[in-house]
Amino acid sequence: MTTSTFVKLDGIAKRWNGQLGVEGITLDIPEGSFTALLGPSGCGKSTTLRLLAGLELPDEGQILIDGKDVTTSAASDRNLSMVFQSYALFPHLSVAENVMFGLKVRRVPKQERLEKLHRALEITGLLGYEGRKPGELSGGQRQRVALARAIVAGQRLCLMDEPLSNLDAKLRNAVRKDIKKLQRDLGITVVYVTHDQTEAMSMADTVVLMKDGHIQQVGSPEDLYSRPNNTFVAEFVGAPPMALIESTALEGFGDDKTVGIRAENIQIVPAGTGRMRCKVNESEFLGAETLIGLDHDGTSGLCVLQPGLSLMPEGDEVEINFDDGNLHVFDDAGKRLAG
C-alpha cells in the first residue's frame, strides 16, 4: 500500500434548503486503501459518498481525486465506479450486458470488451450466468453482478454504499472477505459506506466514524477501539460497546467526567474485594463466552464476559474490579482526556 493521497475532501458541506446533510468533511484517502464511512442511519455517509461520486454537488469545500480538482466535475469525468445499495442493475439487460454497459458507452472495442467481461465474471464467480436477467438471480448473485460491473472498467477508485445490507448474515460474512480480497488483489482504492461497525472494523484500513453530518473520528480500527475520541465513538465501536460510568459513581475522578471501560477489562471478584457492587440484569450465552449485563447507578452498558457457559440468575449481586490503566476518561462534553 502506498501512502500518497489519492482522494482529498477539504471542508465539504452539503445542505438541502438549509437542512444539514454533512458539514466540515475533511479527509485524506491514500491510494490503494480501504476506507469505511461508518455511522448510524442518517448521519451523512451516503451523502459524503454521493458528493465524492459527483451525484451531488457540495455547497462548500473542494474535492480532489488523483490530484485533479473535481469539485464540480460530472460523475463520468471522475474515473470511478460505484456499487449501489440496491445494486441498480438494469432489469431488462442480461448479466453480460449489465457488466459491459459502461464499456460499450465508452466505445471500448468489442474484443477487449469481451475479454474484460470474462475476467470480471471470473473474479466474481459468475461465469455461466452471462445470459441471465437480474430477476433470475439470487440476491448474492445480483450483488456480485454489481461488483463485476464496478471492477470491469478497471477504475482505480470504487465507491460502495452498503453493498451487503440486502444479504443474509452468513452470505454477508463470505462476501465481506471476497470484497476485501478483491480490493487487495486489484490494488484499488475503496470507499465503503456501512452502518455496521463489525463490517467496518473487519474490512477497513481506515474507519471514518460520523454522526449528524460531522466526522467524529478518523483512524485505524485499532485506534477507534482502543482510543475513542469521545463517548459517541466509545459507545458505537465494539461489540459489546464500551460501558460508560459517571465519575461520581467512582472514587478519585471528580464529578464532571465520564469514565469508559470495555467488558474484557472487567473481572468479577469475590465479595468485599471489588470496586463496584452491581446487579445482574441479563446473561446471554454467545458460544465461546457468556455476556453478563450489569446494573449500577450512574452507569450505562456495563457488562462483563465470562468464559464458556456461565449464566447467572437475574438479580444476583456481584462485585467487579478493573485496573485504572484500562479506563478511558472523557470530560463533561464527552471529549477524551489525554491518556
Binding site: 460505484m82 441498480a88 458507452v105
Partner: peptide, 26 residues
C-alpha cells in the same frame, strides 16, 4: 428507480444513451 440513471451517469452514458438503452426498453 433513480439509481439506474445515477449508475448510467457514472458509466458516462449521455442522456440520450440512457433514454434509448434503459428508459425506452423499460
Amino acid at each position: 428507480p433513480e439509481e439506474l440513471k445515477e449508475a448510467a451517469d457514472i458509466e458516462g452514458a449521455s442522456r440520450w444513451t440512457y433514454t434509448r438503452r434503459i428508459v425506452l426498453p423499460l
